[in-house]
Computed example of a mutant assay.
Amino acid sequence: MPCHFYILFSETKNRFYIGATCDHLDQRVRRHNANHKKGFTGHQNDWMIVYSEAFPSKQQAFDREREVKGWKSRKKIIDLISSQN
């Protein structure tokens, strides 16, 4: 099973969440939306996938997560999401 780097967006928070997983992506998003009051995503339940990339290994997916988190730039994240469309 491939691993994924993904970006979620919450309309309520108007924020992005950047992550990586080797679970099924839809299941992971359901867990983000079900974790009420826990962690960054836990206070909202409207997170939706706005971008994802598949990788053959866990290490590659998590490396991509670290790379994008290192940008610390909302504009660069929006540009990345826009490039997928």
Rank of each mutant, 00 (worst) to 15 (best):
residue 63 D to Y: 11
residue 74 R to G: 06
residue 7 I to N: 05
residue 59 Q to A: 11
residue 14 N to G: 08
residue 82 S to M: 14
residue 24 H to P: 02
residue 49 I to P: 02
residue 82 S to R: 14
residue 4 H to R: 05
residue 63 D to L: 15
residue 61 A to W: 04
residue 24 H to V: 03
residue 27 Q to F: 07
residue 22 C to P: 09
residue 22 C to H: 13
residue 46 D to V: 01
residue 44 Q to I: 09
residue 84 Q to K: 11
residue 26 D to Q: 10
residue 17 Y to W: 12
residue 16 F to D: 09
residue 67 E to L: 15
residue 44 Q to T: 13
residue 45 N to E: 15
residue 68 V to E: 03
residue 49 I to V: 15
residue 44 Q to C: 08
residue 5 F to H: 06
residue 31 R to L: 15
residue 58 K to H: 08
residue 45 N to M: 04
residue 8 L to K: 01
residue 36 H to I: 03
residue 10 S to K: 03
residue 56 P to Y: 07
residue 49 I to C: 08
residue 66 R to W: 04
residue 22 C to K: 05
residue 21 T to A: 07
residue 31 R to N: 07
residue 40 F to V: 00
residue 32 H to I: 03
residue 34 A to Y: 13
residue 79 D to Y: 14
residue 60 Q to T: 05
residue 77 I to T: 06
residue 78 I to T: 15
residue 43 H to Y: 10
residue 80 L to C: 05
residue 64 R to C: 14
residue 8 L to H: 06
residue 83 S to Q: 11
residue 2 P to I: 14
residue 58 K to Q: 09
residue 41 T to L: 03
residue 60 Q to G: 07
residue 14 N to C: 06
residue 72 K to T: 00
residue 10 S to G: 04
residue 44 Q to W: 04
residue 76 K to C: 05
residue 48 M to F: 11
residue 17 Y to L: 04
residue 45 N to H: 13
residue 59 Q to C: 10
residue 41 T to R: 13
residue 78 I to E: 15
residue 55 F to D: 03
residue 34 A to E: 09
residue 44 Q to Y: 13
residue 24 H to Y: 07
residue 16 F to N: 00
residue 43 H to M: 14
residue 82 S to W: 08
residue 69 K to T: 04
residue 13 K to P: 00
residue 68 V to K: 00
residue 1 M to F: 05
residue 62 F to G: 02
residue 71 W to K: 01
residue 63 D to P: 06
residue 66 R to M: 13
residue 1 M to S: 02
residue 29 V to E: 10
residue 39 G to L: 07
residue 12 T to F: 14
residue 1 M to E: 12
residue 46 D to W: 12
residue 10 S to C: 07
residue 83 S to H: 14
residue 64 R to P: 10
residue 47 W to N: 04
residue 51 Y to G: 03
residue 82 S to P: 06
residue 36 H to D: 15
residue 16 F to W: 01
residue 85 N to C: 02
residue 37 K to V: 13
residue 56 P to Q: 00
residue 10 S to V: 08
residue 37 K to T: 12
residue 50 V to E: 09
residue 63 D to E: 10
residue 75 K to E: 14
residue 49 I to Y: 05
residue 30 R to G: 05
residue 47 W to H: 12
residue 66 R to A: 11
residue 38 K to T: 07
residue 25 L to H: 04
residue 4 H to L: 14
residue 9 F to D: 01
residue 32 H to W: 01
residue 77 I to L: 08
residue 38 K to Y: 11
residue 51 Y to L: 00
residue 68 V to H: 03
residue 74 R to S: 13
residue 11 E to N: 06
residue 6 Y to Q: 02
residue 9 F to S: 05
residue 58 K to S: 05
residue 7 I to Q: 02
residue 14 N to Q: 11
residue 8 L to N: 10
residue 65 E to G: 14
residue 1 M to I: 00
residue 43 H to C: 10
residue 23 D to A: 04
residue 44 Q to S: 11
residue 40 F to L: 01
residue 23 D to Y: 11
